[in-house]
Amino acid sequence: MTGWRVWAHSAFYGVGLILSSRPAAAHLVQTGLGPVYDGVAHFVVSPEYLAPIVGAAIYAGFGGKAPARRAIVMLPLFWFAGSLLGELPRAPPLILPTWLVLIGIGAFVAADLPLPAALRIALCSMVGIALGYSNGLIAAGAADPLRSALGATAAVFIVTSLASAAAAATSGWIRIVFRVLGSWIAASGLLALGWALH
């Protein structure tokens, strides 16, 4: 193959390659490993999701082993339900302010408020569905939002399991370390409010 045929073939395939752009996926981390890992990565590198989930799991764990076990099921379940709702077409863009979630959860953990187990689980469920919905709104623009939601839910499950188990199994000084962590979350939320009003 010589001459104009080579140029023609090169031009044909070249233009084809240049025009073969993949869909834009704004607002979602792309790992290149597929939508499940994109969902995992988006949750792990987003402190506005990670910090409240860790806080809610710790607070459930502070209530003892029973609330910790229930949180392991309820928090990811409500997250996933929220994600599915957020991914629906024409889902209203209702996003809970980051500062409100961080201050609320951080204050509960820092103060170690002695609430009944049912209220702790209710709090976890509310956090799960609110943040999951927000995550679903963002993931709706991805190539495969359902798998992305599954990936994020798996990450929420792992983080919740670790944090709630650690909080339930500790007492004394380690519990105070968790409370300090809660005060850091609340402090970050207060500053996030400052940025929102800045």
Binding site: S20, S21, A24, A25, A26, H27, Q30, V45
Partner: peptide, 10 residues
């Protein structure tokens, strides 16, 4: 070849 847009991603 253009790849995905990463607008506003973190």
């Amino acid at each position: 070849a253009p790849t995905c847009a990463h607008a506003h991603a973190q």
